[in-house]
């Protein structure tokens, strides 16, 4: 019975994988820095190429490797904002343009904007969208800087 099941499984999985895999990653931190469709293939739980162990290195930091561990406090805070903005340029742009959304809320959390001032913060960013996302090739660092300028 077990053999039968394994055989069955082989057939099944072969049928699954008839649709092709494509793997592509885009790097860089501008708008359009999203992973592409097909990165995961069909059997997602195994296609994810996870070279990172649980909790190893600074994986349990929000950041993705840009943080210098020796520096602490405000600098790290700043780095976390930068990393979040870099990783979420597109969804954040959309939230800022709408003046609401989860990515914008998260930015406010990371920037430690008090709850009472968030509505204002959101409105300010929305009004100044064009001053934040200044060009098609705007970098995440520019976006962070511009946000600080307009707020």
């Amino acid at each position: 019975m077990k053999k039968f099941f394994v055989l069955l499984s082989v057939f099944a999985v072969f049928a699954f994988v008839t649709v092709g895999f494509a793997s592509q990653m885009n790097t860089g931190c501008g708008v359009g820095n999203m992973i592409f469709k097909g990165k995961e293939g069909l059997m997602s739980q195994t296609m994810a190429i996870t070279t990172n162990g649980c909790f190893s290195n600074n994986l349990f930091g929000i950041s993705s490797g840009t943080v210098d561990c020796k520096k602490a406090g405000a600098f790290v805070m700043d780095e976390k904002v930068k990393t979040f903005v870099a990783d979420n340029m597109d969804n954040l742009a959309q939230n800022i343009a709408r003046g609401s959304g989860e990515y914008l809320n998260t930015l406010a959390v990371l920037m430690e904007i008090p709850e009472g001032q968030r509505a204002d913060f959101y409105a300010k960013l929305q009004t100044n969208f064009a001053k934040i996302y200044t060009s098609d090739t705007v970098s995440h660092l520019d976006v962070v800087k511009n946000i600080e300028v307009v707020m």
Binding site: V10, V13, M43, Q45, T46, M47, T51
Partner: peptide, 15 residues
């Protein structure tokens, strides 16, 4: 999450 660690891209091998 827990995942298999592989760089295999050829479907049938992978399966």
């Amino acid at each position: 999450s827990y995942a298999a660690h592989t760089t295999e891209s050829f479907g049938p091998f992978f399966a």
